[in-house]
Design a protein around this nucleic acid. Structure first.
Lengths: 219, 219
DNA sequence: GCTACATTCAAGTAATCTGTTGAATGATAT
DNA sequence: ATATCATTCAACAGATTACTTGAATGTAGC
């Protein structure tokens, strides 16, 4: 047998997996989950050189995980279809359940995820419709500007300390950011609680909200 | 930032992806989806040396995709939890929708998957309960012996030509094998149709049937 | 104890992947 | 056309991966 058709297929599938086989590339995918981005902008966000980022993007493209289009001087990359998010979700799920290392990092840095008691999409919708909660977007300004949850207030994590007064201490805060493992919202909740403000995390981030077909706001 | 907790997590997730980053390892996972296997037995099935197979298995183990236990002289490996199957499914899904290469192989070798008009779990259950169909397991004997769909008849693909008389030509045949891309059932359906016997494929294979919580038979 | 057998380890080669640097492309704007 | 700027290519060193071979481990059965 030269190479059976099945092995040929598995060769392709494994090529997709190799596309996910680097932490920076997963980081890139998380950022692209927020929306389209140019190469340089992405490179700045994730802290790699432009050339290196470009090469990672081309690997992701070959793997069928992202696609690109030209817009003037820029080449904008975006996730290729919703099933990429599903794939990432499945990957995270295996990690969270099957790898002791992941569990350890979660416990050490995120102070036990269970304690955080994440809020579901439904609960957020319901309670925010009733005006019971402040929805807080802790991503940087530019990402908030592209798209955000309806009625959300934007205070980037770095500015949270100095802008605490803008938050109504009588209401519970529900914080969200880029995705289920985005550090920002974990830290925001921790910071708010230390100040005695009731706060919880949304269970995941903006891309999953969009994938669920829920409404978003653009300026 | 030395390495942010998020990047640490993504490092772990990408390690899982690297576990899937080799066609032989995906093949191994498909076989383990049938049930526990010793190293040597697996090596024979997938056509690699024992030492090489052992090393692949250890990579899969490090990635949290399989686990092992000792049984007498043998060390038996099995999939680590159902979410591994989910992950594989998500991977296949991305491949099927996003990669032109995959589409091409499907068309060339599997004569257009749409034509095959796969049968769902529900339809199989219903029609087999009413005695309307022959459920045909085309995997090798030893795999059938471990576990198979209720009421299924076992004719390994290689023996199909010579044992055609055992199949009731009045009934439709529903063939299945190891998984959604297992070649055996595709070829079985093609062979049966050439002989004028009505035949279709089950949409996926035995592992997915088990994961769905449906009943199985053991001898 | 010794033998047989399944599995793993260790060492080596060829191939692939990561990140750097500097030069090449290709579109826009003057 | 020319200059500018975003992106990609090409070439390199260092690390990792796949597979082979032969030796080492560990359990079962005598």
């Amino acid at each position: 047998m030269s190479t059976s058709p099945k092995l040929k297929l598995y060769e392709e599938f494994s090529a997709i997996a190799r596309g996910l086989g680097n932490a920076h590339r997963i980081d890139i995918l998380e950022h692209l989950g927020q929306g389209e981005r140019g190469v340089d902008a992405l490179a700045a966000k994730i802290g790699l050189s432009t050339a290196n980022t470009s090469q990672h993007l081309q690997q992701l493209k070959r793997a069928g995980l992202v696609e690109s289009r030209r817009d003037g001087k820029y080449i904008l990359y975006r996730l290729k279809g919703d099933n990429v998010l599903t794939l990432l979700g499945a990957l995270f799920d295996v990690g969270e359940h099957n790898l002791a290392e992941v569990d350890k990092v979660m416990r050490d840095y995120f102070h036990k995820r269970d304690d955080m008691e994440a809020v579901s999409h439904e609960e957020l919708l319901e309670r925010s419709r009733d005006g019971l909660v402040t929805v807080l977007d802790v991503r940087p300004n530019d990402e908030f500007a592209m798209e955000h949850l309806p009625g959300a207030k934007n205070i980037p994590l770095e500015e949270l300390e100095t802008r605490l007064s803008e938050i109504d201490p009588a209401q519970e805060v529900i914080a969200y950011c880029r995705g289920p493992y985005c550090v920002l919202s974990f830290e925001a909740v921790a910071a708010l609680r230390k100040r005695g403000i009731k706060a919880r995390r949304l269970e995941d981030g903006l891309p999953e909200w969009r994938a669920a077909g829920l409404p978003l706001e653009q300026p």
